[in-house]
């Protein structure tokens, strides 16, 4: 695939819910592209429909209008080449399966032969640093470790695009920093495309190569910002760079404008 052909392409996506009080426009119109190998963060004010957007991207929810295209094919059901990591790690892991079986189940569903499956599972669980915990159950692990299991499951699935929905919103700050670095490492090591949804401005700038700022609901893409920070990111030095501060201030101001409803749709 040529470098500049988008892997994921979202066109005029909108979603209106039918509530008891009448229709609620959750997503106005969202259009953006993700190229292969990019790490894109989506950030927006709370209640801007991030999760709705993500469910539409993942084929879990049908958009009211517009389209999502992954690798040239329109997404109508959960695509084969996408892996999801949910915010609620405690509820997205199967509590009756061990770490090993949690990671293996999607591969089993895809019909990967047993030997290959085992190798993939082992490599993925090692990658997230949980090689010692193969036979434990998720509920025996801390929150951060559970989210590592969810990441291992996504990695073992060998997706072309890894979609993460505020995955670290529920873990403590130190764990969060470790997990952020883990995402950067996985992205680099595996060359996978990552779409990372967060409400944390610092996180979006630290992690992303690109940040999409969403407006408040009804949602559109308010800004598409390239993060020109060095490729090697480090929790201490990167966050201390003047450019980091500039970028995060810029994103912060955009979000504030979005909250006040001042933003207008960018002309295409």
């Amino acid at each position: 695939m040529p470098e500049n052909t988008p892997l994921l392409s979202v066109r005029d996506l909108s979603k209106t819910y039918q509530a008891a009080s009448g229709p609620v426009e959750a997503i106005g119109s969202i259009t953006f592209d993700v190229r292969p190998g990019e790490l894109v963060c989506i950030v927006g004010p709370s209640g801007c429909g991030k999760t709705t957007l993500l469910k539409c991207l993942a084929g879990l929810l049908a958009p009211t209008s517009g389209s999502v295209t992954l690798d040239g094919a329109e997404v109508r059901e959960p695509p084969k080449k996408m892996a999801l990591v949910f915010q609620e790690y405690g509820r997205s892991l199967y509590p009756w399966l061990t770490v090993r079986d949690n990671v293996a189940l999607p591969l089993k569903a895809r019909g990967v032969p047993k030997a290959e499956r085992q190798a993939l599972v082992e490599r993925a669980v090692e990658e997230v640093g949980l090689g010692h915990a193969m036979t434990t159950y998720p509920w025996q692990l801390s929150g951060g470790m559970q989210q590592r299991v969810a990441i291992a499951r996504a990695v073992a699935y060998q997706p072309e695009i890894l979609v993460m929905d505020e995955p670290f919103a529920a873990v403590d700050a130190q764990t969060r920093a470790d997990l952020e670095d883990l995402v950067r490492r996985v992205w680099k090591d595996l060359g996978v495309t990552v779409l990372f949804v967060t409400h944390d401005i610092d996180e979006s700038v630290y992690l992303g190569e690109r940040v999409l700022v969403l407006s408040s609901s009804p949602t559109f893409v308010q800004e598409d910002l390239t993060v020109d920070l060095p490729a090697e990111r480090d929790q201490l030095t990167t966050r201390a760079l003047p450019r980091f501060t500039e970028l995060r201030t810029h994103v912060y101001e955009q979000i504030q404008r979005a909250k006040r409803g001042e933003a207008v749709a960018a002309t295409p």
């Binding site: 469910k55 993942a58 084929g59 879990l60 959960p78 084969k80 996408m82 892996a83 999801l84 949910f86 609620e88 509820r91 997205s92 199967y94 009756w96 399966l97 189940l105 999607p106 089993k108 569903a109 895809r110 499951r153 699935y157």
Partner: peptide, 28 residues
């Protein structure tokens, strides 16, 4: 749990496998 159901759907775990590894244990 709907999160669990969404997880299974997104990883395309369905049919007999979903019955054996998701539906039955969740209701057990």
């Amino acid at each position: 749990d709907p999160v669990l159901t969404d997880t299974s759907r997104s990883y395309r775990v369905r049919g007999a496998l979903a019955y054996r590894y998701v539906v039955l244990p969740a209701a057990s």
